[in-house]
Amino acid sequence: MLNSLPISWISFGALLRREIARFMIINRQTIFPQIITTTLYILIFGFSLGSQIKHIQGFPYIEFILPGLVLMSVITSSYNNASTFLFSARYDYSIQDVLLTPLSYFQMIVAFTLGSMIRGLIVGLLVLSTGVFLLKLKIFSIGIVFLFLILTSQIFVSFGLLIGLWADQWDDLWTFISYVVTPLIFLGGTFYSIQMLPYPWKWISLFNPIFYMVNGFRYGIIGFHEFPIGLSLFILFVLGSALFTLTVYLFKIGYKLKT
């Protein structure tokens, strides 16, 4: 069957393998720091400070915030991988090695997206396993956990590719994280239930995509949700598809890639 694969799909496989190799070569930089940071969060906010906080919606504080902590690691790993790879490839012109190949722009973006998603998912699953081990948690629904992990990672990989494409300097990559992602993480119900917020903040949270990610992922882990899961999935699917389509389109027209 492999022998009958069209050339461009063999190219696709090579590009995907290269993208995975790229972050695995420097795994001390790309995989493990996130796990250490999140483990420290669990230990400090969960066992130390968290013990001073009452239960939230009937769950121990650390169990309530664990899904958000895992998603934070997935979001930053996915975004960082995609944005830094694409920006540095534009910066040193190595992106041209890919643009010269018979790959379609759709195949290029799928390979770049999957490559960065794999890093995000490896980090996310390792952080989740650490949390589950430390808290002796029983996962409520593995299927929902995977579904929201995948969607979250894909959305932030697409953001990363778009920013990596748009950025003119390294600072631009961190600007998006500092001024957009971090506030959205903290305002998206990562560390609290939005039911605890006063009006109108409760409603404003519904415009934050990270709220739907945390909501669905938390449901998958501890079985608690504040918004219908099906609708959360739908909203994230639409957002992910729109970002992916925009990325393919920008590659196709050569935005900041071709003069």
Partner: peptide, 22 residues
Amino acid sequence: NLDRYLTLFDLLVYQGGLFGLR
């Protein structure tokens, strides 16, 4: 415009793959 993360050998093998070489 040689990729900074890969060795020369790996870089070239992947490059062949990008053009459809097994």
